[in-house]
């Protein structure tokens, strides 16, 4: 990879200042960034590590909301969210593999917004709030297509606030080589209704499946989805699955997530 200067600030303020430098990029767990740098697809002038900032790490419950520091690893979420939000903990426990989960972070995943990543489904599926060094962004506004988010240059995620649902589950059909999602569904039931977020399937990145949400909001059962099929329009087609196959999996995974969530 290209060389760069390595900076490891101890506070968010120092990190933001460092990121104002020319061609500076934040580094969190690095599980996607480092491979892309090895392939020379990414050439930061300096990397600003966010893993030395204590306030960015941790999982805590505030009322009906789970607040997760942006630099919290997947492994820590899988462990520490298990009591308050088991659906999220289970999702975190399915990302990558154990070693990846020990390094990768929720903030890094959301900032990258890979169309096949797991966390975007949880954030969008819960209607989470993405908290940055300068503002709060609703998940519905945050995800703006493949690898595209509402984040501005130099803006860093500090935490994610996820409303805790009454029931939730994540059903992931794994892309067997990369271990990302070929297609996966996150389903969350709230008093106000049901949210369904799909990852891995669309050329536009993570999305909500409105028809399924409507059906499930009136009847939270897998049967409620009978007869409902997602269109193959703008679905990803690659050597692991056709667009039609992914569209089909949207239905299968959503039904499985609902069944796993219980009532």
């Amino acid at each position: 990879m290209y060389n760069f200067d390595f900076v490891k600030p101890g506070s968010v303020a120092d990190a933001v200042a460092a990121l104002a430098g020319e061609e500076a990029q934040p580094l969190s767990g690095g599980q996607t960034l480092i491979p892309s740098m090895k392939a020379r697809l990414n050439a930061p002038g300096s990397l600003v590590s966010l893993t030395g900032i204590p306030e960015l790490v941790g999982v805590c419950r505030e009322g009906d909301t789970l607040v997760i520091g942006a630099a919290t690893t997947h492994a820590q979420v899988a462990r520490d969210a298990a009591g308050d939000f088991p659906g999220l903990a289970a999702l975190a426990g399915q990302i990558g593999d154990p070693a990846v989960r020990n390094k990768g972070t929720i903030g890094g995943s959301l900032a990258n917004n890979d169309p096949s990543a797991c966390y975007p489904a949880a954030a969008l599926g819960t209607g989470a709030t993405i908290v940055t060094d300068r503002r709060e962004i609703a998940a519905d506004d945050y995800f703006q297509g493949m690898f595209t988010t509402a984040l501005e240059e130099g803006e860093i995620i500090t935490s994610v606030r996820l409303p805790i649902p009454q029931a939730s589950a994540y059903a992931k059909f794994v892309q067997p080589a990369s271990r990302f999602a070929l297609t996966a569904a996150f389903v969350a039931r709230y008093a106000s209704g049901v949210r369904v977020a799909i990852t891995g399937a669309s050329e536009n990145g993570v999305f909500r499946w409105a028809e399924a949400e409507a059906a499930l909001s009136s009847d939270f059962s897998a049967n409620a989805l009978d007869g409902l099929a997602h269109s193959a329009h703008e679905m990803i087609a690659d050597l692991h699955g056709t667009a039609a196959y992914r569209a089909h999996l949207v239905g299968v995974m959503t039904r499985r997530a609902v069944a796993a969530a219980g009532s």
Partner: peptide
């Protein structure tokens, strides 16, 4: 069941890394 080395019609290798070439894992 898993492995496939695939070129597109321009001769570009589509399965050029372990992100796309499926190596058998312990749970397969």
């Amino acid at each position: 069941l898993l492995e496939n080395c695939v070129y597109d019609d321009q001769g570009q290798l589509l399965s050029g890394s372990y992100m796309d070439y499926t190596m058998p894992r312990a749970d397969d």
